[in-house]
C-alpha cells in the first residue's frame, strides 16, 4: 500500500488522515518491538553465550551480558592452525573446562564451504529443474497434469526416517558416498517438490492472457517463460532460492549418513560432532551457530528487496 496521500482541500480529512497515520505508525512500532523480542530473544542469547566461557554459561541467573567476554571460541574457528596430530600435540583436557576447543574446530570453515557449495548447487539445480516444470503445470494444459502435481507431492509425504536406509543404498550404488554430490542429489530431491509447488501457485496467479499475449507475440514456450514469466516472478524465485538454500544449509540426517570426512562433511555435521560421549561445550556450539547464520543472512539481505517489490501491477485492465 502506498503512503497515505493528503487531500489539501479538506482540513477535516487531513486531520483524520493524520490520526490514522499516527495510529498506523504506533501499531507498526509496537508490533515490531514484540516481534523483535520474540525472534531476537533466543538469538541474543545465542550471541551472548558464544562470547562466554563454559563456566559463565552455567551461572544462575544467566549473565545476559558476559562478565568476561572472550573471543576464543571464534579464534579457534578462524585461526586454528593445522598441525599434525601426534601424542604430543593432541588436546588433553576436557572440553567442559572452557579452556579447550575441540580440534575439529578447524574443520568448521571447510565444512562451511562444503555447505555453501552444496547449497548453491542445490539452489541452481532447483531453479533449472523446478522452474520449467512449475511453468508447465501452471500454464500448459497437458494430459496428466494433475497427476504430475500429486506425484511430486507424494515424494515428500513419507517421513525421512523411513527413507534413510534406501537413500543410502541409492547413494552407495551411485558411488557417491563421502562426496558432496551425494548431498546435492538428495537435497535436490528433497527440495524440488516444494519448489515446484511454490512456483506453480505463483505462476497460476499470473494472468493467463499474459501467457497468451507472449505466445502470439512470437515466443515459444521457453521464451515465454524466460522473457515474461521469469522477470515477473522474481519475488517467488527468491523465496524458492532461500528455501532451497536454507534447507540444504540445515539438513543433518542425510548428511550424517552419506559423509564421512571433511572432504564432504557439512556444517551441521561438524557442529554436531562438537558433542561427544564425554562432553559438550555449549558456548562453543553457540559460537558455531552464530557463524553458521552469517552466510544465509547475508544472502537474504542481498535478495530481500526482490521479495518485497511487487512487479505484476498493470498487466490487466485498470
Amino acid at each position: 500500500m502506498k503512503p497515505t496521500t493528503f487531500d489539501a482541500r479538506s482540513e477535516i480529512y487531513r486531520n483524520k488522515s493524520q490520526t490514522t497515520a499516527r495510529l498506523r505508525n504506533l501499531s507498526i512500532f509496537v508490533f515490531s518491538i514484540l516481534l523483535l523480542a520474540y525472534v531476537l530473544g533466543p538469538i541474543a542469547w545465542l550471541l551472548s553465550s558464544s562470547f562466554q566461557t563454559e563456566a559463565e554459561i552455567v551461572s544462575v541467573p544467566p549473565h545476559w551480558i558476559p562478565d568476561e567476554p572472550t573471543l576464543k571460541n571464534f579464534e579457534a574457528i578462524f585461526f586454528s592452525e593445522f598441525e599434525e596430530v601426534t601424542y604430543d600435540t593432541r588436546k588433553k583436557a576436557d572440553p567442559v573446562s572452557g579452556g579447550y576447543i575441540p580440534s575439529t574446530a578447524k574443520d568448521l570453515l571447510p565444512s562451511m564451504w562444503n555447505s555453501f557449495l552444496v547449497s548453491i548447487a542445490v539452489v541452481m539445480l532447483n531453479l533449472f529443474v523446478g522452474v520449467p516444470a512449475a511453468y508447465a503445470m501452471a500454464k500448459i494444459r497437458f494430459w496428466g497434469r494433475d497427476g504430475t502435481i500429486y506425484t511430486i507431492l507424494t515424494t515428500r509425504v513419507i517421513p525421512d526416517i523411513a527413507l534413510v536406509v534406501p537413500f543410502f543404498l541409492v547413494i552407495k550404488n551411485l558411488g557417491l558416498l563421502d562426496h558432496i554430490a551425494s548431498l546435492i542429489v538428495t537435497y535436490l530431491a528433497v527440495t524440488v517438490p516444494f519448489t515446484v509447488f511454490i512456483l506453480v501457485s505463483f505462476f497460476e496467479s499470473l494472468p493467463d492472457e499474459l501467457d497468451k499475449a507472449a505466445r502470439v507475440d512470437g515466443c515459444s514456450r521457453l521464451q515465454t517463460l524466460n522473457k515474461v514469466f521469469l522477470p515477473l516472478s522474481l519475488p517467488s524465485l527468491v523465496a524458492v532460492m532461500l528455501f532451497a538454500f536454507l534447507t540444504s544449509w540445515n539438513e543433518f540426517l542425510l548428511a550424517l549418513m552419506f559423509t564421512q570426512t571433511i572432504a564432504s562433511q557439512t556444517l551441521p555435521i561438524i557442529v554436531a560432532g562438537f558433542t561427544s560421549d564425554f562432553t559438550i561445550s555449549f558456548s562453543f556450539i553457540n559460537a558455531a551457530g552464530v557463524i553458521a547464520v552469517i552466510p544465509p543472512v547475508v544472502l537474504a539481505v542481498m535478495f530481500e528487496r526482490y521479495i518485497v517489490s511487487g512487479l505484476t501491477a498493470g498487466a490487466v485492465k485498470g
Partner: peptide, 8 residues
Amino acid sequence: PWAIPTVA
C-alpha cells in the same frame, strides 16, 4: 531463526 542449523 531459519538460518540456524537444526542441531545448533
